[in-house]
């Protein structure tokens, strides 16, 4: 393996949907093991940015590279391998509802398996695999649900299954797109704290998009502010000033109907969406 493991670099990345820029000239680097929170209003481009990081979206301009290698220059084999080392926790639930928890977790590693190997893991997992899944589920606190059908679990438990799946992948980089949007506030804090702890322990590079500023400030040493697809700031949490936060969440002129929750900086600790 290379010396650099799990570094992520975006250079002047622009993404346009039908000519409209969702991301404009964004450059940022995450060093291996670093943790950052991506904050910004709904529609500011957080999902788009994260999706360029595992090549789900190809940038219109600029380049994304993992450990110094650009996605656009990878063969499909290399791309598959790179993707298999990037865990992604999606905004909406991305599990297969009528599979068992163990099967959903196992499916995280398909990118590293042949078709038959993957099918075997899914249908007749070896003791070794089962024990690994149990371990991962234990680390997110739902080990006893291993043989449960996934859609019988609560929203918060399903979110933990999604986290377990990403961890089972044995990733170098973990990306999470608003991983707490389907969880109540108490669970939200626990979930973010859990993700953060696991990444710290395993030395994973972590980038999480959040719409809860309090949590972002509490758990992440680095904040990345996005507004209308542009990078507004990217620095250590304690150096981010109140005026920068205000600017980030100020709505554009002529758009006043959003209600006090999103426009008044004093309420920013609450949900912004």
């Amino acid at each position: 393996m290379n010396a650099a493991r799990g570094s992520l670099c975006l250079k002047n990345v622009t993404v346009a949907y039908q000519g409209i820029e969702a991301l404009a000239e964004v450059s940022l680097t995450l060093k291996p093991g670093e943790a950052a929170a991506l904050i910004g209003l709904s529609g500011s481009g957080k999902t788009t940015l994260l999706n360029t990081c595992n090549a789900l979206i190809q940038p219109t301009n600029g380049a994304v590279s993992i450990d110094g290698k650009k996605f656009s220059e990878m063969s499909s084999q290399e791309l598959r391998y790179a993707r298999s080392r990037i865990g992604f926790i999606h905004q909406s639930l991305s599990l297969v509802p009528n599979l068992r928890v163990i099967q959903n977790v196992v499916s995280g590693r398909l990118g590293q398996r042949s078709f038959l190997g993957g099918a075997r893991d899914l249908l007749f997992p070896s003791t070794n695999v089962v024990e690994k899944v149990y371990e991962v589920l234990d680390s997110v606190g739902i080990a006893e649900k291993i043989y449960e059908r996934t859609d019988r679990l609560s929203g918060g438990q399903q979110q933990r299954v999604a986290i377990a799946r990403a961890l089972f992948q044995d990733p170098l980089i973990l990306l999470a797109d608003e991983p707490i949007s389907s969880v109540d506030p108490v669970r939200a804090k626990a979930t973010i704290s859990l993700i953060r702890e696991i990444c710290k322990k395993k030395g994973l590079t972590l980038c999480v998009s959040l719409h809860n500023l309090d949590l972002a400030k509490t758990f992440f040493p680095r904040l990345i502010g996005l507004q209308d697809g542009r990078l507004i700031f990217d620095k250590a949490t304690e150096t981010v000033g109140a005026n920068e936060i205000n600017k980030l969440f100020n709505l554009p002129d002529g758009c006043i109907d959003f209600g006090p929750l999103t426009s008044k900086p004093s309420m920013l600790g609450k949900s912004l969406e």
Partner: peptide, 12 residues
């Protein structure tokens, strides 16, 4: 996005 092939996606 985690590198699964399309036949694997079909099955899973």
């Amino acid at each position: 996005s985690t590198g699964a092939s399309r036949l694997q996606i079909m099955l899973t």
